[in-house]
Design a binder for these strands. Structure first.
Ligand SMILES: NC(=O)c1ccc[n+]([C@@H]2O[C@H](COP(=O)([O-])OP(=O)(O)OC[C@H]3O[C@@H](n4cnc5c(N)ncnc54)[C@H](O)[C@@H]3O)[C@@H](O)[C@H]2O)c1
Ligand SMILES: NC(=O)c1ccc[n+]([C@@H]2O[C@H](COP(=O)([O-])OP(=O)(O)OC[C@H]3O[C@@H](n4cnc5c(N)ncnc54)[C@H](O)[C@@H]3O)[C@@H](O)[C@H]2O)c1
Lengths: 231, 231
DNA sequence: TTTTATTAAAGAAAAATATCTTTAATAAAA
DNA sequence: TTTTATTAAAGATATTTTTCTTTAATAAAA
């Protein structure tokens, strides 16, 4: 897919023209996808943006805009062809080419990810895990072998793995990341609360459950205040 | 648009000043907190917004604005008092009053959360877990007892638990949520990709790892394009 | 003491994102 | 066939969030 690039006056003030997909859109697309897979299994051949909007409680134009990023086109009065839309979103999100990844820190969370059989369902395949604990090294978790961290560099370099998943204790997160970066890992999925220092050539995606708890507790507080008429 | 002369549309919607904390701010505060706890342990008594900004790669005024929501005040040329700031953020995020929660679906992810000893470190204490699998019911995971779902209503009602964590298969997510809502759960932390239907009086916080993978893969793709000068 | 550099805070401006409005396409109903 | 209702798409507007600018406070240096 190739994109038309037109420089607007706005773009002149930017360091580079905008080609990046808005992050909110990227966050919503997987949600649409899951919903679409559901209705497809139920045999629904077509779906309109307003219908999706009603089900997922979004603004209808939001959906149309988001979907237009993927290149999907719909027909007036019919909507989109369900299976086509699924395929287009999957292609757009690179979910069909399973990217190989390694995981460092096979503890509670790491084991959950290793045992999660649907991780490949969204584009990632963990091919090896690394740890230092003698109780972990040498075992298999969810069909993935856990090796000692000292073997990371050799394996990652040889297999040209680009994605690293970080589920170590926060304390040693930076240390583990340095090893990954050294082995030429290009993207890090970080589950620790640590802010990672990496070169510009490496992408970090933080998944902070802390942030989600903060929002949950706050919204709960606001809800209570509203109910007591105190806001 | 003669109304503009008297009162803007914005003002009409806001009879009162905005009380909701912006979600981006809420997402950043836990990150600041983790960083502050780190420097506090290293004995740093004061910290300025620009210093935090350098470490966490944010805009300095962003930090000042975020912190001002919590009520923290800093001194010019000195910054904030580290331990005061930590306490203020913790208070603001309600991390000191541990909220009790129950968990439904003690599988891979559920077990990770039950075994996660630092969950209480950010304000939540899981007091019971529920499942249907005979292999789970009756066991203990991370010092928490796993009971049959049929006992949920009685326990939650009796102990007035307000928070429910959902880690069941996506397929039965709505079913499980209906049971929670019925038991007067007020806030649901949803780890499944399902969009949950709940009454207005219930808050849902979705934690979608899918969304994070989508962003990671996309940014990795963009990075590669940039390096090959193709953007 | 006076000067200087740093900083928080407030406010303005810009950028990003979401929502609303209009238009044209088109399938279904009359 | 003609009419009607629904809808995608494009564009305008509104809102939210981030970044920039100015100001005043103040600790450290001169
Ligand atoms: N468990 C959860 O539900 C949960 C939730 C949110 C965030 N997290 C975060 O995820 C991370 C892991 O949490 P957890 O509960 O799985 O902890 P854990 O202690 O169970 O797992 C950490 C694993 O990392 C391994 N490890 C230690 N040092 C290592 C090293 N130098 N190299 C490689 N591996 C090493 C340990 O042996 C252990 O197996 C933490 O940073 C935590 O904050 C966990
Ligand atoms: N494992 C992960 O790392 C991971 C990552 C992202 C998202 N998720 C999501 O989290 C959810 C759980 O994933 P998982 O890997 O832990 O799955 P899992 O199958 O290991 O766990 C699901 C648990 O729910 C229980 N359960 C089934 N029906 C139930 C019912 N009616 N009432 C109560 N409990 C019931 C099962 O017995 C099982 O113990 C899924 O929706 C998945 O998409 C998991």
């Amino acid at each position: 897919m190739y994109q038309l690039l037109i420089m607007t006056k706005k773009d002149l003030h930017r360091k580079r023209p905008r080609t990046e997909i808005p992050e909110p859109t990227l966050r919503r697309l997987p949600r649409y996808l899951h919903f679409l897979q559901g209705i497809w299994e139920q045999g629904q051949m077509n779906i309109s943006a307003p219908a999706i909007a009603r089900e997922l409680n979004y603004d209808p134009t939001q959906i149309v805009k988001d979907l237009s990023y993927t290149g999907a086109v719909g027909k007036p009065r019919v909507g989109y062809v369900t299976y086509e839309l699924i395929r287009i979103i999957e292609d757009f999100l690179s979910l069909n080419t399973k990217s190989e990844a390694i995981l460092v820190g096979a503890g509670n969370l790491g084991s959950a990810l290793l045992s999660y059989d649907n991780l490949s369902g969204f584009g990632i395949k963990i091919i090896a895990a690394f740890d230092v604990a003698p109780t972990k090294v040498g075992t298999q978790i969810g069909n993935v072998s856990v090796m000692h961290v000292s073997r990371l560099n050799e394996l990652v370099t040889r297999l040209k793995v680009e994605i690293g998943i970080l589920t170590t204790p926060a304390r040693i997160a930076q240390e583990a990341v340095d090893i990954m970066v050294d082995a030429k890992i290009k993207a890090i999925w970080n589950f620790t609360p640590t802010f990672l220092q990496v070169p510009d050539s490496v992408v970090v995606q933080n998944t902070s459950m802390y942030a989600n708890v903060a929002i949950l507790l706050q919204r709960l507080k606001e809800l209570k205040n509203k109910q007591y008429g105190q806001i």
